[in-house]
Amino acid sequence: MKVTVDEAKCCGAGQCVLLAPEVFDQREDDGIVVLLEAEPAEGLHAAVREAAAVCPAGAIEAAENA
């Protein structure tokens, strides 16, 4: 899995951090998403997919490796 984030779209809701704190964090000054792991371990894939699905701004993309 390859994860990308669009900081310009991020609204700082923080749902991604709650669902997958190993993969996402937030900047302290404005709450914008910080990607910690662009290629997370397989055990985190379900949480990353859920984080992408619930992101209110659609700022997270999780692409399955081909």
Rank of each mutant, 00 (worst) to 15 (best):
V33L: 10
R27E: 13
V48D: 03
V48G: 06
L44K: 10
L35W: 01
V5C: 01
T4C: 04
Q15L: 12
N65K: 11
A20T: 00
E61D: 12
V5N: 03
M1W: 03
V33K: 03
P21E: 07
A13T: 08
A38P: 13
M1P: 05
A63S: 10
Q26N: 09
Q15D: 14
D29L: 07
E39S: 12
V23H: 00
L35G: 08
A20W: 02
I60R: 03
L19F: 01
C11S: 15
A8S: 13
A63Y: 05
A13N: 08
P21V: 05
I32G: 11
M1C: 12
L18I: 13
Q15P: 00
V33I: 15
A66E: 13
V33G: 04
C11H: 08
E7V: 12
A66F: 01
L35H: 04
E37W: 00
E7H: 03
M1T: 10
D30P: 00
A41C: 10
A52W: 02
E28A: 14
E28M: 11
R27N: 10
V17L: 06
N65M: 11
L44W: 02
E28F: 12
A41M: 14
E64C: 08
V34W: 01
A53N: 11
E39F: 14
A62T: 07
V48M: 12
E64V: 10
C10Q: 01
H45V: 15
G58W: 14
G43K: 12
A52I: 02
N65W: 04
V23F: 02
A13H: 13
V54M: 09
A53H: 12
C11W: 13
A51F: 02
V54G: 05
A38D: 12
H45L: 15
E28H: 14
T4D: 06
L35N: 08
A46S: 15
L36M: 10
C10P: 03
V23I: 15
A59F: 00
A62F: 06
Q15R: 10
E50L: 15
A66R: 05
A46Q: 15
Q26W: 02
Q15N: 14
G31P: 01
D6F: 04
E37A: 15
P56G: 06
A63M: 09
D25C: 06
H45P: 08
P21S: 07
A38W: 00
V5G: 02
R27M: 10
G14I: 06
V34P: 08
K9R: 14
G58N: 07
V48N: 04
E39R: 15
V33A: 09
A59D: 05
R49T: 14
A47S: 09
A46F: 06
E37V: 11
H45N: 13
A51Q: 06
P21T: 05
Q26F: 05
